[in-house]
Amino acid sequence: MSDASPIILVEEIRLGLFRIYWELDNSMWKKEDVYQEEFELCGSKKGREFYLNFELQVVANKNRPYDFKITIEDLLCTDGNDSEKEEKESTHQSQQEQPQSKRQKLNKSTVPSNMLPAMFPTYVWLDSHVSSTNELPLLEDEEGIWEVAVTNPNIQPYIAVWMDFGTNEVKEKHVITGLADMFHNQKQCDVQFEFNDGQSVGAHIVILSAGSPVFAAMFQSDFLETKTRKVTIVDVEIAVFKQLLIFLYTGNAPRLAEESITRLLFELADKYGVGALKDECVDVLLTQFNIENVIDMLVWAHFHSIEKLSKKAMKFLVKNFRKLCVQPEWMELMKNHPDLCLRANQQMAELLPKTESEDSE
């Protein structure tokens, strides 16, 4: 067991849906080993504790020396005293020797069926960046233990694990419908957003603050907006800003997939710290590449440091270079972004067949 102690970052994306970031030090990819971290959920599941195990597995392939296995163990501590926590944080051997009487696995057979969605994850999966698939589900091999082995992984500085507790959909929709009704019918709004064209839209400070750390700071400070309950928006049109507000109320932006809105909405979500909306925008943008927009998309993704989008745009550009190199946008790219052109040329060179002299070397 390694002594490394990666940092767990846990966030609740919506009711009962959690994303867990597990940071990986570069040294962790250099030898076969097992790394373990304990983490606790927040928000609606505060107090629930889990173990995350990351096990490197050596393979006979120089190009990819390691595969790995992720295991999530769901534990319910029956004795929450400090001595047990000290035991769990000591050496791997002491963890194995802990008295079983102090801890028991969650047992679905002992929990009323109407409580299962609240007590147990209904779906656990890895983010798409570690493999070629959109998402990689963890299978529940034993009660309270989820595992998945990743073959030929993309080496990344972090692992992102998702856990969905399958909260009651009917009740959840009822709450969302009520919040949406308050916004769409502009009921009891306590802040107004005013735009350059004279239009305005109202909202509720408590809802905005819950979904955006920027709004939370704005309305808990001595800013003018706190006193006047009026906010002037000059950098975006009301139609795009409304999509941000609707997302904060409902978790959904109806016009997200419109090409004229997606990138603007990402920038707005980035400005106000709405991470879940940023992720949804990127997922949509990954499907919007075409010959006409890929160069512009590449530059935009590079500017905003969206690695996943930048990589796919570059791959699309290289694949369609014969069509793109005659377009005026390519000349602008060469002039204004030589670093991106160099990267494209390097990737194209890798696709060319080697000459006889190169093979002899």
Rank of each mutant, 00 (worst) to 15 (best):
E280H: 15
E280W: 12
E280V: 09
E280M: 15
C281R: 14
C281T: 14
C281W: 07
V282Y: 08
V282L: 11
V282P: 05
D283L: 10
D283E: 13
D283V: 08
V284Q: 09
V284D: 08
V284T: 12
L285N: 09
L285S: 11
L285D: 02
L285A: 13
L285V: 02
L285M: 15
T287A: 08
T287H: 04
Q288M: 11
Q288W: 00
F289V: 12
F289Q: 10
F289T: 12
F289H: 08
N290A: 14
N290F: 05
N290W: 05
N290H: 06
I291G: 12
I291E: 11
I291P: 06
I291K: 07
E292V: 13
E292I: 11
N293G: 15
N293Q: 06
N293R: 09
N293A: 12
V294K: 04
V294H: 03
V294W: 00
I295L: 11
I295R: 03
I295A: 03
I295N: 04
I295E: 05
D296M: 05
D296A: 15
M297A: 10
M297E: 01
L298D: 01
L298R: 03
L298T: 03
V299G: 06
V299E: 04
V299C: 06
W300S: 10
W300A: 12
A301Y: 02
H302F: 03
F303H: 06
F303D: 04
H304V: 00
H304A: 05
H304G: 03
S305V: 07
S305R: 11
S305E: 13
E307A: 14
E307C: 09
K308E: 13
K308T: 11
K308Y: 03
S310W: 01
S310E: 12
S310G: 07
S310P: 00
S310Y: 00
S310F: 04
K311F: 04
K311V: 09
K311Y: 06
K312E: 11
K312L: 10
K312W: 00
K312A: 13
M314N: 12
M314V: 08
K315I: 10
F316P: 14
L317S: 15
L317D: 06
L317E: 03
L317G: 07
V318L: 06
V318W: 01
N320Y: 01
N320I: 12
F321L: 15
F321D: 08
R322S: 15
R322Q: 14
R322T: 15
R322V: 11
K323P: 05
K323M: 10
L324N: 09
L324T: 07
L324G: 03
L324D: 01
L324S: 06
C325I: 10
C325R: 10
C325S: 08
